[in-house]
Nucleic acid binder design. Structure first.
Length: 358
DNA sequence: AATCCGGGGCG
DNA sequence: CGCCCAGGATT
């Protein structure tokens, strides 16, 4: 490990952070105490998710559920509905579960200890350290994707980030900067992440604006664009399927059939439209009861595959099968507010458009 | 250690 | 469009 004047490094980072930190709804203003509930909620929402996407959700959640006890008392379906569109829906289940555990077993107060935090649902190594440092000012070693990149460049760590050895090395580097005897641990942890988000970006880092450029081994040799080394990505397979818009007249209104998805797997527990399985080749039209006419194509990309769905409009009268138990009718004008994940929201919009034209 | 989980912004 | 990004749970 090479030599960094840690007190000097921290002073530079804290000075930069004080002037350049973004004002965010969950961030404590200067001189104010952080709200652990807000801090936790934002950290869960920010997992694998960009700040801009989180802001409206954070406002909505804190408006509906001002305290953790309120969230704990809410029905899970309501939480899932409000989470719809944010993705990684297991986070919403864990969020709700965590709120219940903290309310019931910790008197509504988050534990300050990293190890204890890590036992809570949805809280892993990163989030435990972040809450301990940011909400409670502890010298926890906070390492997210941003910090990994920052220290990899600072110390010119050449090995690909995926390796376990890399994680350990980067953790040691971060720990070497997280000296317990210093102060402002909450601000320092956020400063490291903020630097990664604003200056030390994945592509085209703004080294000219970096407060600690003089400490950066990568910038010294002009290698900041080569570090960290990215692992090669596996190609995404294509999958195909069918999606059904099953219509029923209800007085002078029209209704669509929706289904609650199983509580495990993709889009677990979310509401969607019925359809076929998604497989490597397209399902055959004649396999469907009533042999509907295909209407339009819905494309969507998930983390690990591309999906192409054929949209079918099906009059309920022509349906030759019984409805599954997890299906229910819903007024067509209220489908956009029921809390659909993005795939189904997109599919519904295309359905509405296609229906108007037709 | 490897795999499964979404979604949106940007070039 | 394709490409890129970012943690936790599960097995």
């Amino acid at each position: 490990m090479h030599t960094i004047d840690v007190p000097e490094f921290r002073t530079l980072m804290l000075g930069w952070y004080k002037h350049h930190a973004r004002i965010l709804p969950w961030r404590a203003k200067f001189g104010e105490f952080p709200n652990p509930y807000h801090e936790w909620l934002s950290e869960i929402m920010l997992q694998q998710t960009v700040v801009k996407a989180v802001i409206p959700y954070f406002h909505r959640f804190t408006e509906i559920w001002p305290g953790i006890e309120d969230l704990a008392a809410a029905p899970l379906e309501y939480v899932m509905k409000e989470w719809a569109g944010l993705g990684y829906y297991a986070r919403a289940r864990n969020l709700h579960k965590c709120a219940q555990v903290v309310t019931a077993q910790h008197d509504g107060l988050f534990p300050q200890d990293e190890k204890e935090l890590k036992t809570l649902p949805g809280i892993g190594p990163y989030t435990a350290a972040a809450i301990s440092a940011i909400a409670f000012g502890n010298p926890a070693v906070v390492m997210d994707g941003n910090v990994e990149r920052v220290v990899a460049r600072l110390f010119a760590h050449e090995a690909p980030l995926k390796e376990k050895e890399s994680k350990k090395a980067l953790y040691a580097y971060t720990a070497s900067l997280t000296t317990p005897q210093s102060d402002h641990h909450a601000e320092f942890a956020q400063a490291m992440m903020e630097l990664g988000a604003l200056i030390c970006t994945p592509t085209s880092p703004q080294c000219g604006l970096c407060p600690v450029r003089n400490y950066c081994k990568s910038a010294a040799t002009g290698r900041q664009d080569q570090i960290p080394i990215k692992a090669l990505k596996t190609p995404k397979p294509q999958r195909y399927g069918a999606i059904f818009f099953i219509e029923r007249k209800k007085k002078d209104q029209k209704e669509l059939l929706l289904e609650r998805r199983p509580h495990k797997g993709l889009l677990a527990g979310m509401v969607g439209f019925p359809g076929s399985l998604w497989e490597v080749s397209s399902p055959r039209i004649e396999d469907f009861p009533g042999a509907p006419i295909p209407g339009f194509e819905v494309r969507h990309t998930f983390t690990h595959f591309h999906l192409s769905l054929q949209g079918y409009i099906v009059p309920y009268e022509s349906l030759a099968t019984d409805l599954a138990a997890n299906c229910f009718w819903h007024n067509i004008s209220e489908c956009d507010t029921i809390g659909l994940p993005s795939l189904y929201k997109k599919a519904f919009q295309q359905y509405m458009k296609y229906r108007q034209v037709k």
